[in-house]
Design a protein around this nucleic acid. Sequence first.
DNA 1: TTCAATGTTTGTCCTGGACAAACAGGACGT
DNA 2: ACGTCCTGTTTGTCCAGGACAAACATTGAA
Lengths: 301, 301
Amino acid sequence: MNPPGFNIAAVERDTGLSKDVLRVWERRYGFPVPDRDVNGERLYPADQVERLRLIKRLMDQGHRPGKLIAAPAEELTALAPRRSRRAESAAPTDASGLTDLQALIKQHDAAGYLQAMQQRLARQGLQRFVQDTVAPLTRQVGEAWEDGSFEVFEEHLFTELTKRLLRQAIAALPSGSRGPRVLLTSVPDEPHILGLLMAEALLALEGAECIPLGTQMPLLEIGRAAAAHRADIVGLSFSIAFPQRQIPGLLQQLRLILPTAVELWAGGAGILRTPQMEGILKLDTFDAAIAALADWRANHP
Amino acid sequence: MNPPGFNIAAVERDTGLSKDVLRVWERRYGFPVPDRDVNGERLYPADQVERLRLIKRLMDQGHRPGKLIAAPAEELTALAPRRSRRAESAAPTDASGLTDLQALIKQHDAAGYLQAMQQRLARQGLQRFVQDTVAPLTRQVGEAWEDGSFEVFEEHLFTELTKRLLRQAIAALPSGSRGPRVLLTSVPDEPHILGLLMAEALLALEGAECIPLGTQMPLLEIGRAAAAHRADIVGLSFSIAFPQRQIPGLLQQLRLILPTAVELWAGGAGILRTPQMEGILKLDTFDAAIAALADWRANHP
DNA sequence: TTCAATGTTTGTCCTGGACAAACAGGACGT
DNA sequence: ACGTCCTGTTTGTCCAGGACAAACATTGAA
């Protein structure tokens, strides 16, 4: 399909490995050794790109690149792990039919999935639906995508349909005007929105006034938006896929941009390993978010 | 506000200017001249970042960086232009209250905007709502954003709220299972989804079975998804902001990937200047899309 | 006016060096 | 055995300055 091969920018897009990293690996480990075009620029053959994608996936699971780059096919074996802790303890806990939901997506049965989810929503109520269905299902789909049993388009379909369900449920709520004004968004390079929608659903359910700005807001814009909307709280969501090392710096920078009176809350699967920081509320669970909302109300009579 | 300043990665995130560009501008034009930290690394003061954002905006309007970087405040004057053709002829045509809707967003009145839009939806019906309200409003907001009278976060709020309205309207439709199966998505580097949602609303209204995959699907994935969903038609949307010169190549590549039996439709403000191509249906207007759907049905009894 | 040839601007890629933060592993004391 | 400090290694990001081709502007001819 493409005999020419991928240039370095295309590989960066496809693998998520920066140009700097691709070049420094070549220098150090001698692994991706791309061809060169007439102009001396790197031209990666498709199989090397494939290998890089695999390596990146394993790195995201915690492996280190130095080890991965040596070993031709043993990596394929290393695919399965990384479900040591939760998966084993979660699998028995499942029972609740999440696997069936996942299977519906896998069979590309959009209508069936929507129907099943709507039933669950009606049965569980919005709060439990978010906590017991959407959140674990999202994690499960993320894992399936990581270990290759979900295609990109299947993950997209899941996301798109679930977004609709949540937005629909949120729209059905009375527009809360009692609690704090919460501005919800994510930083650049964080395109995942499901976490934000789940948070919005729970906060709106408690009567907070949510201002959804979508994803990928530049930090300075978040500051302006907070001022323009007179927000009491800025809520950010980080997915598990977000480069964790960048999080503390981002939060600290945003903390400096925002007035002290505006609280900064961070949540999502991406922040679990982030340390506590001054002036930033780290929300490890949805219950923590609900508790934080109650706290805020207690302190702002 | 932030005495430390922004490092080069943060500036890249916030302005969209790559590190390479930031460095080469400094070398060539002598403009962003950041401080240096103890380690000799660039540290951009906030005002320089602000100026860079302004320059980037003007560049997106078609200005060239070399000119922009000379001239201290004349740029502020250069903000207004870029409304030579349409705005003048469109302004008198307005009348229908689109300006009021835009004003609601500008005032950050989310609830008011939603209410006004819902009223219009009820009054006009979905089809006319999409064609006469959402589409022109989207174009108008895009223009306002280009000439600087809309902030980034205001444009995000508009998009987010409008997305909700459309999705809600779509969900309320009976799940069409009569017409063709239409797979709706966009290519990588095309994150705008409003066009797709408008198309989905109109097609679903006609009873077509839409499969919404969200945005930014790699081409090979589109092919796999089309097969998996047994799609009859693949519909792509290109916004006005998409680099137009890439469009023909992308479409041709995708045409090769898809089986001949699967039709390829392209729409959106971005394709108006794209030439007609063999095996690809170019939809300049929403009416054209509806007509194309009728055609397909006539040919597939 | 339209089109082709020429010059200028501008983004991206290159090499090879450097450094600090993150990590792994061992020594030490409890 | 367990936790804490220290030390060496791994790894990502940044830097400088050179090069080139694609995009753009401009000029001149048909």
